Each structure stands twice: as structure tokens, then as C-alpha cells.
Amino acid sequence: MTVGVLRHRHVELLRQHRVTDGLPPGHVRPLHVPDRYYTWSQVAAESVPTRLDRLSSVRLRPDPYTGADLGASQSVLDAQAPELFDLAEVAGWAVRTPFYAGVFPTGSMNALCRPMPGSGVLVLVDSGVLHLVPDVLKIMIVSRSVFGDSPLLDPDHAASALAEVFNAHLFGNGAAVARPLPELAGQRLDLLRLMTRRATQFVVAHEMAHVLAGHLIVSWRQTDPNTPVGALDMQAVGWPREYEADRMAARIMLASLDGLSPWERDTVEPYLVGAVLLVLALHEVVAVLADAAGRVLPFIGSHPPPLLRIQAMVDHLAEHLRTPESIAVAADLATWLDERIPAVLEWFTLVDVPPQP
């Protein structure tokens, strides 16, 4: 069976859940882009009531899903797939099973495997993740001193911007996006592209690892009614196999360092590790914010707790990295994110209980 068959199955799956009424080949549906920020001095600089109004408007969306930019998000996954297959082969695992990653509003930070009998394996990558990862990375990059440049956002404005991004992820059902942030340039843009690509590929590589390791043969169906499209199935494999998939996905990502000069590897490796660990750190952050906001995350018990996955991943990576500084850089990025979360929680509280005039 060809990938084309899986693509057809994916479109049918979208139709079954009334997510879209068709994705003609080569056609990208027009994307409604909300008013954006044009300079970093504008970010989170409006009045508190204005920012709270924008956060609350996302929470009041009446529809579970309205279509968003499926075509544009799908093109991101399509562009990354060939390299990911090559990296898997370099790591020692050639992909023989027809495999297709399709964007879908699953409501979960974890992508979902959907075996398609007679066709291959369809992986549903949450549409919200494809917004959350680059937005968080962009805020992180401009809020820190990198490449000798001073930060473009102070801690308070960074926290407000993060609150909008996480609010859209938790309440937008993969359809709403935060107000678009300014574009980056130069080395900051290169770093954003590198880390976003590797983080997104790690999400897909984790699901690919389940296929390569034969986990789906011993899996069982798990249904959760709390997704943006109602009840949705996934193939559960148990925590030991989830840890194994994390390790395999990390090895696939590390294969991207093969062929680099020692200087290039020393430069890239810390940010590659940072991208991998950021995915797991975001699981923890989203879980904390969801709990505070009274949201129920789909398939929350299908994977080990994020902190355990992070520790297991750090232990695994420590055996395969060129320098321990790579873990230190990744830990520094995670610490920066952790330090912003209390302020993000304050914004979430203000949405529920607005300040008195």
C-alpha cells in the first residue's frame, strides 16, 4: 500500500469527525490570521483588560473545532517526513511499513497511532502542538541573552505572551491560535527553525518507534471522549514501551549530528537536546496548567508522568552525547520555562476572576 492510500484514509478520518469537508490535493485553505504583533515592544504591552479579553474570548469558543489551518500545518509534517525517514535509517531502523503523519485536533500533546489494516500506520499529530512548540520556543529565544544579543522581552511580558500561547492550546481545541508574534531574523531565526524542526520530528519519531519496535502488535485500543472531536481511539502499549519509544526517538534525532564537524556538533548538540527535552517539559507544563484551569486532557494516563520521562531521557542521553554541557544547556532552558509558569498561572486566575476596577 502507498502513502497515498494513507493520505486518503486520513482525509476520510477528518470527514468522519466533521473536521473538514475536504482537502483537495495541493489546495491550502485560506487561513484567518488574527491581528498580529509587528514589533517585540508591542508584545503584551496592551492594557490588562485588553489582554484578559483576548484570553477569555478563546475560552468562550462555542464550537469544538472549526477548521483552522489544516493545510498549512500538514505541509509542515510533509516537509519533515523525508528527513525523518533518512535519520531513522542512519540510526539503524529503516522504515518498511507505510507510515503517514497527518495533522489532527487530538487535544493531546502525544501524537496518536492509528493502524490502518491493509494500508499501514497513520499517526495523528495534534494541530495545537504544531502551534505551541514554535510559539514557546520563539518567546524563550527572545527572552534570553543568545549569541551576545540582549533579550527582546522582559520576564513579565514573556509570561503574558506564554499565557496567551498556553491558553490557546488548552482552550482553542487546535483551532484557535495565539496572536501571532513578530518574525525573527539572523541567528535567532536559525535557532528557532532548528529547535522547532527537531522537536516536531521527535513527536513523530516517538510514534514511528512504536511501529519499528513492533509495539502495535501487542497494543490495545483505548478510547477517550474528551478530545476536540469527541470520542477518539488510540493504541495503548504500556509505560515500558513508551520509555523504549522515547529512547529510540532520541537516537533517531541524534543521528542528525552524524557527519558534522566537531565544532558544528558542539554548537548544535545542546539545542538538539534542548528541543527533545522541551517536548517532554511541555507535557508537564500543559498538565499543570490544565489542572489549574479545570481542563481534562485526553489520554492523560497513557504515558508515564512527564517528570519520569524527562529523568529517563536525561539518563539515556548522557550515554550518547559528546559533552555533558548539552544537558546543562537543556536544563537551563527548562528552568527558564519553569520560572515563568507561576506568572502564567496568575494570568489564568485573572481570566476567571478579573481584577476589580
Rank of each mutant, 00 (worst) to 15 (best):
M253D: 11
L254F: 10
R179D: 03
T223F: 02
W336T: 03
A290E: 09
V123N: 02
H17M: 09
E183Y: 01
V123F: 05
A287P: 03
N110V: 13
P225E: 04
R295T: 09
A328M: 06
G120L: 04
M208E: 00
S145G: 10
H316S: 07
E89P: 05
R198I: 04
A281E: 06
E89D: 15
E46Q: 12
E244H: 14
A209P: 00
Q80M: 13
V203N: 06
V351T: 12
P49G: 07
M208P: 08
A79F: 00
K138F: 02
I327S: 01
L70I: 03
P225N: 03
E346P: 03
T227F: 07
S143I: 06
P105K: 09
S127I: 01
V353Y: 04
A178R: 10
A209V: 13
S108N: 14
R54A: 15
T227M: 10
L254V: 10
G301A: 12
F171I: 03
W336D: 03
T335H: 07
P25R: 08
F299Q: 07
V33D: 08
A81H: 14
V136Y: 01
A281W: 01
T2M: 11
L308Q: 13
Q235N: 09
K138V: 09
R251F: 08
E269I: 08
M116D: 09
V177H: 05
Q356Y: 11
G71M: 07
L77C: 04
R251I: 02
T223I: 10
S143N: 04
H157R: 15
L14D: 03
